[in-house]
Simulated assay, not measured.
Amino acid sequence: MVYLYSVLCCLFLFPYFAWRGGQALGRRGRKCLWGVLATTFGLFVVALMTHRMIQADWMSHVMNGSVYVFFSSMYAAGVVVLINLLRHIDNRLFGFYTYAPLWKKKRVRQGAFVLTLVVFVACLFVGHYNVRYPQVIHQDLYLTRLTKPGEQSTKRLRLVFFSDLHIGEAMTPPYVERAVDLILEQKPDLILCGGDFIDHLSEYAYDPRVMKTMRRLRAPMGTYFVLGNHEYRADTLANIRFVSEIGATLLRDSVAYPQDSLLALVGRDDFVNEGRKSIEAVTQGVDPARRPVLLMEHTPASIDSIDRTPVDLMLCGHTHGGQIWPGQLMVWWKYGIASGEKEVAGRRICVSSGVGSAGATYRMGTRSEIRVYDLYW
């Protein structure tokens, strides 16, 4: 859907750029600008109409490109609006531009055009980089409740948590391979996936290249998944089956005890499933006296209820850290956190911005990540 929105919005943005940009360029430059924008828009329209029929890596790049151009155009349009606002203020209060010689006005318009172009190109590269090169965030978590006063921790466990891979049109097999390589480089004892591992259509996940890569997700204590809202969008049964096909374990309102009950791992179904169990029901019967208790839930909607559970660490995804600025503000308003960590009633809450992205491989104001926790008790 984001592809459709990007093309429709560019239908209005491109003429605006051509009009404003044409004021700074000569006749030949104006024609060239119109030609570039018209050609780009035509290419995106053709791709939008045919991309469902052509499932190929090059088509994914074209579709990604349409969204790259759209979001970068939005930021560039912000620069143009700001420049015109400053010009209006100058006209009312100062007159530096209004009464300047024509040659100076021309130089100012050309400078504004160059600045807008620089912002556009910079946003293309930054948006791409923030997705394609995830950061690895290492954190230590000492479970003092399981360690007697004055004694040192005797157990250590390394888990890698990732979410929101969104295998699909945007997240192509080479990127999936890069993400899996990064996860395995951390030498985890336990691998956890917080949902939205498939974006929309399961055909992309069942690509032989993707299947081969995802089957490499192995850890001594196992690999566990929970479902996210995107797994319920289409082909839900195929998306559920995908987890077992790659050799992982799916937790749906259930508890697992890896490595002879060294820890309790609780996996809750996503809020899209209105019939899922309450957080109290899912964690009922879990004995926290001798082991850490971890909870995976895709959407961080249950944070305020965590104090009614024996959970030590809650792992969530879904937010993408806002993905596109200023989306962070809207996510924070809804959940009280866009990404990162917080404590609630002595419990550690982690909301990951995710290792992939939805709609297109574009992020602004946030970055893809995987989380590495070393637990000590």
Score class of each variant (00 low, 15 high):
127 G>M: 04
153 S>E: 15
150 G>A: 10
156 R>V: 07
155 K>C: 15
162 F>L: 03
141 L>M: 15
152 Q>P: 06
154 T>P: 07
145 R>M: 07
149 P>G: 07
162 F>C: 01
153 S>I: 07
156 R>H: 12
137 I>S: 03
156 R>N: 12
156 R>D: 05
161 F>C: 04
145 R>P: 09
127 G>F: 02
147 T>K: 10
147 T>R: 12
153 S>M: 07
139 Q>V: 14
152 Q>A: 14
146 L>R: 11
148 K>Q: 13
141 L>G: 03
145 R>W: 12
139 Q>N: 05
134 P>N: 04
127 G>S: 03
167 I>C: 03
155 K>H: 03
141 L>R: 06
137 I>L: 10
155 K>D: 07
146 L>E: 14
167 I>E: 00
149 P>L: 15
153 S>N: 13
145 R>N: 11
137 I>E: 07
132 R>T: 09
158 R>V: 05
134 P>F: 08
169 E>Q: 13
127 G>N: 02
132 R>Q: 08
146 L>W: 09
131 V>L: 11
154 T>A: 10
144 T>M: 10
128 H>S: 04
144 T>I: 15
167 I>K: 05
155 K>V: 06
138 H>G: 00
153 S>K: 14
150 G>H: 14
148 K>G: 12
158 R>Q: 01
129 Y>F: 05
157 L>Y: 07
144 T>W: 12
165 L>A: 06
163 S>K: 01
156 R>M: 09
135 Q>L: 08
127 G>A: 04
